[in-house]
Write a protein that binds this DNA or RNA. Structure first.
Length: 230
DNA sequence: CCAGTCAACACGCGCC
DNA sequence: GGCGCGTGTTGACTGG
């Protein structure tokens, strides 16, 4: 697989991902033309050839050659009959497209053209392939996100149910079998604040009393030294 | 370019 | 074995 990675890097460079874009008038094949062959592990090479043979047999039986879909066949005048005929890409072409897609999900026109030439495909075929690939990747990702959100929703529903039960239990414990009324502390004493005349709780009453003492003392002191009103 | 759709093809399955 | 059917994949097209 190391070879693959190296090839992918070269491929990306060859496609001008790093800034080098083959000029349109340059009809020469891109330097990495044969990289597609290197991209296929040796083990798969035979398998692929076999697969291609099968494809070819399959296609020959239908009078079509799909290995090079963009090659103008002598009977291409009959293309109207097969206008919607599906041209299956070879494993080699698919693998190369996949490798490029992993690196860059979109290509500029020059890159598409270079790749098309390299893979012996039409520019439009490369364009359509990338469009489809992006759409299907997005669809898969949406499905994954949807599954994730469903699981989250299930977890939250369970948690919500659990918390509701817990709340019910706590309420049942607190209320208990006794009748519903507010239980006040036994030694509750209510105090009236002398300054604001509000009803105060026990501690508040003490604080207010202290406050009253301080205020009165302060008043007496101020009046004794002639600072009243300050 | 994207979303939606069509259509060809591959594949698995059950049935005879 | 092969036939029909359902389903998934994928290349291609269309309209916005």
């Amino acid at each position: 697989m190391e070879d693959d990675e190296a090839c992918i890097t070269n491929l990306s460079l060859g496609l001008g991902m790093g800034g080098h874009v083959p000029k349109k008038n340059n009809k020469q094949k891109v330097p990495c033309l044969d990289l597609t062959f290197q991209l296929c592990p040796k083990g798969e090479q035979e398998e692929e050839e076999e697969a291609i043979d099968v494809d070819q047999q399959h296609d020959m039986s239908k009078g079509l050659c799909l290995k090079h879909p963009n090659e103008e066949s002598p009977d291409s005048n009959n293309s109207n009959n097969a206008s919607r005929k599906k041209l299956k890409l070879t494993k080699e072409q698919s693998a190369t497209l996949e490798d490029i897609f992993k690196l860059h999900t979109t290509l500029n026109p020059a890159q598409k053209q270079a790749l098309a030439e390299q893979l012996n495909l039409k520019h439009r075929q490369v364009e359509v392939w990338f469009q489809n690939r992006r759409a299907r990747t997005k669809l898969k990702q949406t499905e994954v996100d949807c599954d994730f959100l469903k699981k989250c929703c299930e977890k939250l529903t369970d948690e919500n149910l659990r918390l509701k039960k817990e709340l019910q239990e706590l309420r049942a414990q607190k209320i208990g079998p006794t009748p519903l009324y507010i239980q006040l502390p036994k030694a509750t004493t209510l105090t009236i604040c002398s300054s604001c005349e509000k009803l105060l709780k026990p501690n508040e009453g003490k604080k207010a009393a202290i406050s009253d003492v301080v205020r009165n003392s302060s008043h007496k002191l101020k009046s004794s030294i002639g600072l009243e009103g300050i």
